[in-house]
Structure formats: C-alpha cells, structure tokens
C-alpha cells in the first residue's frame, strides 16, 4: 500500500499515480489505484476513461458492503481502479469510523500493489491515509508554494503520527499545541516537541526521537525544467534533515514534458505509449526505485500506523 501525496494541488499526483500504476501492472503485478482525493477525484481522467458508475462513495455511504465490488476495470491489463467519491456533500470529511472501515478494506484488497492518490491539504483524513500506507510518497515541484505546502504536510504528518501513538494527556496537549500554527509554546519543529517532552519524561523523548528517525517518506521532484531544478531534491533532503529532523528518501525527479499533458488531452496514458521520452524513462526509474523499497519492506517489515 503506497500513498502519493504532497500537500499542494496540481503538482501531478494523480498523473504520476496513474503512470506508476501502469508501470507496476506492466511488470506483471496486480495493481489497484484508489482515488482517495475525496472531493476532487479525477484519477479516472488520468487513465483516459469515463467516470465509472461505481465509486468509493458507494462504499463510504454503505450502498456497497464490499470494497472489492467498486473496483472497476481501467482498460489496462492488471490495473483496477476505485474511483473517487463524487458527492458534493462533505465527502472530504468522512467520519472517523468510515475512514477506519475504508482503510481496513483497502488493506484487504486482492492486489500486489495498492496506490492511493491523496487529496491536497493536510486534513486528518489525508494524513491518516498517508500514515497508514507502507510507503508514503511526497511530490514536490520546483516552486516555493509547493515546498511550503510539502514542509507543512511533512510536519503535520509527523505530529499526527505522534498524536496517534501518544495516549497520555499532558503530552497530547503539547502535540496539539504544535499543530497550531502560532502556538504559544513556540513549537516550530519536531525537535521542539522532543525537547519539551524529553524534559518532562526523558524516555518518552527518546521514543519520540526514534519515531522521528524511522519516519522516512519518499520524495519525488516533478516538473523539472532545468538542471538547477534537478538539484532541488538533494537540497530539500538537506534542509528537511537539518530543520525538521525528517530524513527523506529521494526516488528521483521527473522532467517536465509536453507529452504529459498532451496524453491527458488525448485521453491516453503516457506509459502506455511505447515511445521512449525523458519523462517515461524517469517514471520507469522512479517505479523501479519504489519496487526496491517494496522488496526491502518484505524482508524487513515496516512499522506503520495501524488505525
């Protein structure tokens, strides 16, 4: 189960999810794409198909009991799709119990790879889907707004993780304080929380520190147009490590290419075209990197949030 997120909209989450899905399917895996962008679903468009009749809404609204029943054929061998919720009414705020039920059933889907296309923003739903996945991919594009959102996303995700794992009141309050942008305890980074908590309870501080170092989201730099843009990945890794203490794992970058949006317009999937282009090569590279991470997961196992 792999989540693709990144805080900001319009950075290519859905497109990359769709194309990575095609990569995995073409290497013989059973893949299900889940459009978890509640309220802004358009993964079907990235796959070049019409809005399927069955969607995640049917499951969330309990019109369908089994999540398997809303998996539709994407038209590509080995690739199934769970289309996103199309309700206008507050589907971005599904109930907590619904979220648990959905996550539980996503995990039970019959597939080798499940790719979740997350919505933008840092709502608890988005974060929880991200944290519950075995691998979480954060996509950035070389723009200040994207980085601003990504850092916020990463920070929020880690705080949310702490919040799930913590159960004692005074510490929960510190974490909740940290989630407020201008909290009066001046908590701005995970370091600040760890320091504050460590003063009250050193063992707990150590535990938090261990959680921080095992929190390793993957990073993809998308829409790279220049060699300078391509250097952004390592720089972000460095900045993130120094400031937030979060160690990212860089999967690679993907060039900006006109063939990407052209493919969407002609309602085809880029990775299904057999033309080799810089973009397709890059996507294949990222897919292989992910496969490597998945293999090491199978060997080592990996703790993730169990909701």
């Amino acid at each position: 189960m792999i989540a693709v997120g990144g805080g900001k909209g319009g950075i290519g989450k859905s497109l990359l999810t769709a194309n990575l899905g095609v990569c995995f399917a073409r290497s013989g895996k059973r893949v299900v794409l889940v459009d978890a962008d509640l309220g802004g679903a358009n993964l079907h468009t990235c796959l070049g198909i019409d809005l399927p009749a069955a969607s995640l809404s049917d499951f969330v609204q309990r019109r369908v009991a089994n999540l398997e029943d809303v998996v539709v054929d994407s038209g590509i061998d080995g690739l199934g799709l769970i289309s996103g919720a199309q309700d206008f009414l507050g589907s971005a705020n599904i109930k907590y119990t619904q979220k648990l039920r959905t996550l539980r059933q996503i995990r039970r889907l019959q597939a080798d790879v499940i790719l979740l296309d997350l919505g933008s923003g840092t709502s608890f739903n988005v974060l929880d889907f991200f944290l519950s996945s075995h691998l979480g991919i954060v996509i950035i594009v070389p723009e200040p707004t994207s980085l601003e959102n990504s850092y916020r996303f990463l920070r929020s995700a880690f705080y949310r993780l702490l919040h799930h794992r913590e159960s004692a009141r005074p510490f929960l309050e510190i974490i909740e304080q940290a989630m407020l942008p201008n909290n009066d305890k001046a908590i701005r980074t995970p370091h600040d929380i760890i320091r504050l908590v460590g003063r009250m309870d050193p063992e707990r501080g150590d535990r938090y520190r261990a959680w921080l170092s095992s929190f390793r989201p993957l990073l993809v730099v998308n829409q790279v147009r220049s060699p300078e843009d391509a250097e952004l990945g390592p720089a972000v890794l460095l900045a993130c490590r120094k400031y937030l203490g979060i160690e990212l794992d860089l999967l690679g970058h993907i060039d900006y290419g006109d063939n990407v949006w052209q493919a969407v317009r002609t309602r085809t999937v880029l990775m299904m075209q057999d033309v080799e282009s810089p973009v397709t090569q890059r996507i294949w590279h990222v897919a292989r990197q992910i496969e490597k991470r998945m293999e090491s997961l199978e060997v080592a196992g990996r703790e993730r949030l169990k909701l």
């Binding site: 200040p144 601003e148 850092y151 390592p234």
Partner: peptide
C-alpha cells in the same frame, strides 16, 4: 559547497522552513 547552495538566501529548498 552543497550546504552553501541549499541554504543560500535565494534557495527554494529552504522557503517557508527556516
């Protein structure tokens, strides 16, 4: 050199972080 580039004042990587 890498650190200098990453933490230059016009670096996008540090935007909104530091």
């Amino acid at each position: 050199r890498q650190a200098r580039r990453a933490f230059a004042s016009d670096s996008v990587a540090t935007y909104a972080l530091f």
